Simulated assay, not measured.
Amino acid sequence: MRLPYVQPGGLRFERQNADGSERMANTYGFKWGEQGDQVQFIAGRTMEVIGKKNNIRSIKALDQPGFVGAKEFEITFDKSLDTSVLIRGNRFVNALTNMFQFTNAVISIYPEIPELKRQRRYFHSGIRIENNVFETFDRPLVYAKSVDGLRFSNNRIITNKEYPAFHWNHYPFLFERVINYKLSQNNFDFNFNPEKDVKTNP
């Protein structure tokens, strides 16, 4: 579950509890989690993961009798293991017909990280993209940022002329701060050259 972005006025941790409140006075937040959901704590400027994912055990309002409208709350959580991301068995057809935000490729793994150069850890890990079909008129297939471990395998790439190519990204694979990636056993209908078609930035 991806949780909405919340800017707390402050979180105070004590063992497995976190107390928090909304940043702006005289405003109330919205329901963002339930018992059993997962929550991951991160550093705001580098988006580095702090610890492992946690399961919410309970949420209790501190300033209201009920949950709705609570400005101050307490979350009790249990630790759980990290999980991987699997994108398998999809068919992507002409997916880059517009320049929406964060669409640097058909699959765009794009966490917003204000200070990427200060990162010491990675935001994502264990991403597998396999057994998919990409029918595309333009070149960008995968963009990824801050990933340790990405595998692109057993995919079929079919190019067409249904729309004119216009995207600013001319690389099928564009990686920013990505390590331990592997491209294997893919079927391209063009002459794929890893030296020219994969662009990596430190």
Results as ranks from 00 to 15, higher is better:
118 R>D: 15
47 M>H: 09
145 K>S: 10
148 D>E: 13
184 S>Y: 12
9 G>T: 11
14 E>H: 12
33 G>P: 07
91 R>G: 10
42 I>H: 09
123 F>E: 04
59 I>M: 07
173 F>K: 05
191 N>L: 07
129 I>S: 08
60 K>H: 07
38 Q>P: 00
11 L>P: 00
80 S>G: 04
41 F>G: 03
74 E>K: 15
129 I>Y: 01
135 E>H: 09
30 F>S: 13
82 D>C: 02
112 E>D: 14
73 F>L: 07
142 V>A: 06
175 F>Y: 11
186 N>K: 04
110 Y>T: 14
102 F>K: 12
193 N>W: 04
37 D>I: 00
126 G>D: 14
133 V>G: 01
192 F>D: 07
49 V>C: 09
117 K>W: 06
166 F>Q: 12
179 I>S: 07
91 R>W: 10
172 P>Y: 00
80 S>D: 07
50 I>R: 05
95 A>S: 15
123 F>W: 03
140 P>V: 01
65 P>C: 06
177 R>F: 06
76 T>G: 05
161 K>S: 13
105 A>M: 05
175 F>A: 01
12 R>S: 11
18 A>M: 09
123 F>Y: 15
200 T>W: 02
181 Y>G: 01
188 F>E: 02
34 E>V: 11
181 Y>T: 06
67 F>G: 08
122 Y>T: 03
173 F>W: 08
19 D>L: 10
3 L>W: 12
189 D>Y: 06
92 F>N: 00
92 F>G: 01
137 F>H: 15
21 S>K: 11
182 K>C: 06
70 A>Y: 02
139 R>H: 13
114 P>M: 03
81 L>G: 09
131 N>I: 03
76 T>M: 04
37 D>T: 01
145 K>F: 02
14 E>S: 15
141 L>M: 09
23 R>N: 12
169 N>M: 02
186 N>E: 06
134 F>W: 00
66 G>C: 06
174 L>N: 11
46 T>C: 04
30 F>N: 12
101 Q>P: 07
141 L>N: 06
198 V>D: 05
160 N>P: 00
36 G>W: 00
65 P>S: 11
91 R>N: 11
105 A>K: 02
33 G>H: 05
74 E>A: 08
93 V>E: 14
165 A>L: 04
22 E>T: 10
80 S>E: 09
176 E>W: 10
36 G>L: 00
93 V>D: 13
202 P>N: 14
180 N>I: 02
166 F>N: 11
15 R>K: 15
131 N>M: 03
201 N>S: 11
16 Q>K: 15
68 V>T: 11
162 E>K: 14
64 Q>F: 09
55 N>E: 08
65 P>H: 08
180 N>V: 08
190 F>D: 10
60 K>L: 09
137 F>G: 03
80 S>W: 06
48 E>N: 05
184 S>L: 14
36 G>P: 03
168 W>R: 13
91 R>F: 12
